[in-house]
Simulated scan of single mutants.
Amino acid sequence: MSKKKNKVRPLPQTVGINVPGVETHAHLDMEDFKEDLPEVMARAKECGIAKIGNVFLGPQAYETNRSLFDAYPEVFFLLGVHPNDADQYTDADTQAMRNAFKSDSRLKALGEIGLDFYWDRVPADVQEKVFRTQLELADELDVPVVIHSRDAHEKTLEVLEDYGWSGKPLLWHCFGSDVATAKRILDNGWYLSIPGPVTYKKNEEAQEAVKFIPAERMVFETDCPFLTPEPWRGKRNEPAYVAFTAAKVAELKGMDVNELWAICAKNAYDFFGL
């Protein structure tokens, strides 16, 4: 009996992106990249990525891991307390983030913050309190926010609109919902970030939404090491693989991938002040 052949997967360089762009949301300080960060960064450059947003999940992660990127000036920073960690939040976290944003010019947005009702790890009222606390901090610091919302879109939007965040700088991280949700986000003047699952064959709802979202209000992300796009689904995600997401979205929108990549890069530069 012959052995089953390993699946041959195309490299992201084959997408042919040849203009500089932005991968807006990565977790490169996680253990998954401990052994090969230099190689990961090199592959990203080969795939047209000029800037990468690294997301630190809380002040401790920021203080411990920011030095990992001393040799990579192309990396900018996001910092916030994830809703699944909201039960550990203290006033000291608020002060630590306030100090960090005032002293580190690489910090460009407060996030990812929001609500997560999928995992049900933290009571909803605790999540909401910490969410509002961080919105207040972002308002005080005059920085954009990046939203995490999983199985909580209606409540997240309710909190944001009640707070008065309409028209203020906001990026909806990892958007994968329907046209109606996309429209409400757009009507508030916000941006949407498109991740790898839009490449999945059965993800028709998100694909229809992507057709609806104007390119001028869209950016790309991997959320690596999670949410790997096809054709590398099932493997560790990394910034270079955002090329496959861009290619799929370009196909859905009937656009040239380099044209779309350039538009979304400008959006990211404008939103984060890069």
Score class of each variant (00 low, 15 high):
20 P>N: 05
22 V>R: 13
34 K>V: 11
38 P>W: 06
39 E>D: 15
56 F>T: 02
56 F>C: 07
57 L>P: 01
58 G>C: 14
61 A>I: 14
64 T>M: 14
71 A>C: 14
72 Y>L: 08
76 F>Q: 10
85 D>M: 14
95 Q>L: 05
102 K>F: 07
111 G>H: 08
121 R>C: 06
128 E>Q: 12
130 V>G: 05
131 F>W: 07
141 L>K: 02
143 V>R: 00
144 P>L: 03
163 Y>H: 08
166 S>V: 14
172 W>H: 05
179 V>L: 12
179 V>N: 10
180 A>H: 06
186 L>P: 05
190 W>H: 13
191 Y>Q: 04
192 L>T: 10
193 S>Q: 09
196 G>H: 04
196 G>V: 00
197 P>R: 02
198 V>W: 04
199 T>E: 02
199 T>I: 01
200 Y>G: 01
202 K>C: 03
205 E>N: 03
209 A>D: 08
212 F>L: 04
217 R>W: 03
218 M>K: 00
221 E>S: 07
222 T>P: 05
230 E>Q: 13
235 K>Y: 14
240 A>K: 03
246 A>Y: 03
249 V>Q: 06
251 E>P: 01
252 L>D: 03
255 M>V: 01
256 D>W: 01
261 W>K: 02
266 K>V: 13
267 N>Q: 08
268 A>D: 04
273 G>V: 13
